[in-house]
Design a protein around this nucleic acid. Structure first.
Lengths: 167, 167
DNA sequence: ACAAACTTTCAATTTATTTTGAAAGTTTAA
DNA sequence: TTAAACTTTCAAAATAAATTGAAAGTTTGT
């Protein structure tokens, strides 16, 4: 398989995978493209490679930067900015997990906290409280776990945790 | 807060959370509704409670059943079927993770396996191969981890793993 | 066998999300 | 200060995803 064919397949696969997990296809594709580029790319490069508009590239590179998995780089003698992806996939995974924890898990945990205050002693009310308490506790655990992973050594995934988990 | 208000807030929150993770809102809402219902609910009950059509309820309950987190129950003397959610949130989380592993991670890992066969010894080709190998290895690890979690005792999450991970 | 009760399907519609592209904004160099 | 080079914005358009609802299909009791 030629390098270019490989890159395209990778970009396609990453785009699909991303969209299955609630990340928009173009963002995932830009990320994929940057992952497999030896050199940082400009907005124009990305537009051309993926056939998407300038606005689209601009919005999605901004988002990728906000996620902390892509950074702007400046080439000397060049006016425009280039983009480059963090290629350490462990770091990337943890950053994504941690961002999602903050953005999505946080609000749910807040909502659940409120819901613990429903009144009533009927069977129904008790069931409700039990479910809310369980989900809440589970969510708090996941939240703590991700926080801890974030702080831990970058090799956590291949370290003792993995030894514990993998055959 | 009244029980009903609580239920509605829960359903809303779960719906949003689900859609952020690539699960359609109605499916997440039906799941939420079943989670907080003391009794199994019929298609009609769900239609009424969530204001959605029969076809929608039918499709999404089927899906929830396919995910293994909702089951049909029959009440004696009743002809129609009722639905009930598995309320053990640990089991639910693991089933969802495992289904997604099979459905979404699997195909990506396959694609990555192919991509290891790109030819070329240029810097670019080497970088590409490195990224693919890294993601592949990471993916395989995650895959194994989830498989293992699935098989493990249902209390794994509160067991030694959690003790290891949580403060 | 029949019909009532119930479930499933799917083409058409609606709703939500993503993308475009041109205009406005900003920065840089001379 | 000016203009070229570049970035950002956002309303409109395009695309994708979810939903409807009526018709078709199935099951059950008599």
């Amino acid at each position: 398989m030629e390098l270019n064919e490989g890159k395209n397949k990778f970009i396609e696969a990453w785009g699909i995978f991303g969209s299955e997990w609630g990340i928009n296809r173009t963002m995932a594709q830009i990320h994929a493209l940057l992952l497999v580029s030896a050199e940082p790319l400009s907005t124009e490069d990305i537009m051309e490679e993926l056939n998407v508009s300038r606005g689209n590239v601009n919005m999605n590179t901004r988002d990728l930067i906000a996620w902390g998995i892509v950074s702007r780089v400046l080439k000397k003698g060049e006016r425009r900015e280039f983009f480059q992806a963090d290629k350490d996939i462990y770091k990337v995974a943890i950053k994504i997990l941690n961002e999602r924890r903050k953005r999505e898990l946080g609000p749910v945990l807040e909502a659940l906290k409120d819901l613990k205050q429903v009144k009533g002693t009927t069977l129904e009310a008790k069931e409700f409280k039990k479910v809310v308490a369980d989900i809440s506790s589970f969510g708090e655990s996941a939240d703590k776990m991700i926080s801890r992973m974030t702080k831990a050594d970058e090799n956590w995934f291949t370290g003792s945790l993995m030894k514990f988990l993998i055959k």
